[in-house]
Amino acid sequence: MAAPLTLLPYDEDASGPARRPAAPARLLDLAIRAMNHCTGPHKDQAFADLAAGNVVELGAGGGSNLPWLPAGTRLYAVEPNRALHASLRARCDRAGIEAVVLPVSAERLPLPDACVDEVICSLALCTIPDAEAALAEVARVLRPSGQFRFVEHVAAPAGSLRGRAQGALRRPWGAIAGGCDPHRDTLARIEAVGFAEVHAVRGLLRHSPAWPVNTAVWGWAVR
């Protein structure tokens, strides 16, 4: 395993109180299974050959990406919602993953420049308030040739029926889905960061019943 990262000073209270009560563990497990039923094939592609060692995850939630982390991973789990921390730590323990849970926002990571080879996220950039700032942080903490791996909920093509539905549903969907914006052009934001390479596939989340908001992009970007 790689040497532990030296964390920069951060305010543990900066994320504020838990945004909502934590779901019972059984319900959270069911939600994670349902999520991975829809996103699993995309994660198989985006997270393939993920390097062990220090891995940063944006919006780690309850630990839905743990099955894709190789043995020997030390996970720096960025999750501002402290109500999820107990479940996240428990799932990491069961998976044999060493976890450093960071109660901070993705827009300001308490990590040194160029310190990791891997950053991952799934269904997170649609909820992070300032996605551009979060992506700038990803680029900052990645070493040269390091990889940012993503499976993200994104806007449908402009002018399409699905795209118009997403625009109309932005506010109500965000209210029930933890602030998710179903109509962000996240791939354009990733491409604008200045990665050396971006490899992405557009498609639909498999078996998702949420027809208006199930457009997705997945892949990886190389620093």
Score class of each variant (00 low, 15 high):
151 V>F: 03
176 I>M: 10
167 G>Y: 03
164 R>C: 06
170 R>F: 00
174 G>P: 03
172 P>F: 11
161 L>W: 14
178 G>A: 02
167 G>N: 13
167 G>H: 13
167 G>M: 10
150 F>W: 09
155 A>E: 02
173 W>V: 08
177 A>R: 13
167 G>T: 14
156 A>H: 12
150 F>I: 08
168 A>N: 12
169 L>D: 10
153 H>E: 01
177 A>M: 14
153 H>W: 01
151 V>L: 04
157 P>M: 08
156 A>F: 08
164 R>F: 07
166 Q>D: 06
181 D>Q: 14
172 P>N: 12
177 A>I: 07
152 E>H: 09
159 G>V: 06
166 Q>N: 08
160 S>W: 02
153 H>V: 03
165 A>K: 14
179 G>N: 06
166 Q>I: 09
171 R>G: 04
158 A>D: 15
150 F>C: 02
181 D>K: 07
160 S>A: 05
157 P>V: 08
156 A>Y: 07
174 G>H: 02
157 P>I: 06
179 G>M: 01
157 P>K: 11
176 I>D: 03
162 R>G: 03
155 A>P: 02
151 V>R: 02
162 R>N: 01
156 A>Q: 11
181 D>Y: 09
168 A>K: 15
179 G>C: 05
159 G>E: 08
165 A>F: 06
175 A>L: 14
172 P>C: 12
171 R>Y: 04
175 A>S: 13
164 R>I: 06
171 R>S: 10
157 P>R: 11
164 R>M: 10
170 R>K: 14
171 R>M: 05
162 R>Y: 00
176 I>C: 04
169 L>A: 15
163 G>Y: 05
150 F>Q: 05
169 L>H: 13
181 D>I: 11
181 D>G: 04
174 G>R: 04
175 A>V: 06
164 R>W: 12
150 F>R: 09
150 F>Y: 10
181 D>A: 10
